[in-house]
């Protein structure tokens, strides 16, 4: 009850005060109808772009790491689904589809079926909004979420649905929406990780956050291809605040040859070449802070 009241209180400025703020999503004037195809800005070939798009890591991996290091589940990390109806431009819908997709991954990893239904409902609405709802089998997913025995299937169908939506957006020349969805997934994954890192200085988590420098660079390559659109340009400028911090992080490599071992009857290739992330406490704190600011700004209405 207290939490609900608090949420309501916090949401009031969102409901009434944010429409004219600078820096959040632009108003609908730049929104593009879903039927319109948008080609990338040809500074980068479509083929090269396709390669880059394949290169953004899955939110499942970040959430799995968060759980593996013993972090208890917290609903406070998640973006609220309460105002999903208000995300009504294709840009907002695609971006929030990614955000909620990352949160769904987190909920799946922690087997939180009760909350999952809320996120499935919101994702379904957003997916319909940008005409990719046919790849999101809401009724099956909801059925799986409410019968606690099928977590593996729920996870599989969820991830698979997002992969299909992403592919379809690119196939139908709406790569800008795919780019926005991927950005939403990445930022939310970063937010989850950095929120946990505030209270947990686990070195594996810190390394994983530092390594996101590589994904961030990929993300910029994707988004830059659509920079002729003002909203994407605005997004790039916002994300650049995180990039500035990541540019200070150094990643070095130690060479080594892979070896093959057998484990539980299966071949495992152990890589002995390793990446080493050099990140100071100050840099980490800056990344945590700026990620929170950027993430909250981007989900603002």
């Amino acid at each position: 009850m207290i939490r609900n009241s608090l949420l309501l209180l916090l949401s009031l400025p969102l409901l009434f005060g944010c429409q004219s703020k600078k820096g959040k999503w632009s108003d609908t004037e730049f929104d593009v109808p879903d039927s319109i195809e948008i080609a990338a800005d040809f500074k980068i070939s479509e083929e090269a772009l396709e390669e880059i798009v394949q290169n953004v890591s899955s939110p499942i991996e970040m959430s799995a790491l968060i759980k593996e290091i013993g972090t208890p589940f917290s609903v406070d990390y998640l973006a609220t689904t309460d105002f999903v109806e208000r995300y009504n431009t294709s840009f907002q819908m695609a971006y929030m589809l990614g955000v909620f997709g990352a949160d769904l991954g987190y909920l799946n990893i922690y087997d939180k079926n009760t909350q999952i239904v809320d996120y499935l409902t919101s994702i379904s609405k957003l997916a319909d909004g940008i005409k990719v709802g046919q790849f999101f089998d809401f009724s099956s997913l909801k059925r799986l979420a409410t019968s606690r025995e099928n977590i593996d299937s729920l996870m599989y169908i969820s991830v698979s649905s997002f992969n299909k939506m992403d592919s379809y957006l690119r196939e139908t020349k709406r790569g800008h929406l795919s780019a926005l969805m991927i950005t939403g997934i990445w930022i939310e994954g970063m937010y989850l990780a950095t929120q946990v890192a505030q209270d947990n200085s686990d070195p594996v988590l810190q390394t994983r956050i530092g390594e996101q420098k590589l994904n961030m660079n990929n993300l910029f390559l994707i988004l830059n291809a659509y920079q002729s659109q003002p909203q994407i340009q605005e997004l790039v400028e916002t994300l650049n605040q995180i990039k500035v911090e990541f540019d200070k992080v150094e990643i070095t490599y130690e060479m080594g040859d892979p070896e093959t071992v057998e484990q539980d009857g299966m071949i495992m290739i152990v890589q002995n070449e390793r990446s080493i992330v050099h990140i100071t406490e100050e840099q980490m704190n800056s990344i945590i802070k700026i990620t929170e600011e950027v993430r909250n700004k981007l989900i603002e209405l």
């Binding site: 590589l214 299966m266 495992m268 290739i269 070449e273």
Partner: peptide
Amino acid sequence: FSSYAEDTKEEFNPFNFMCKKT
């Protein structure tokens, strides 16, 4: 790694990869 070894004609499908370099 390859899921098929040309020299021994052995198949390793699936196989695991322990990644140490992002």
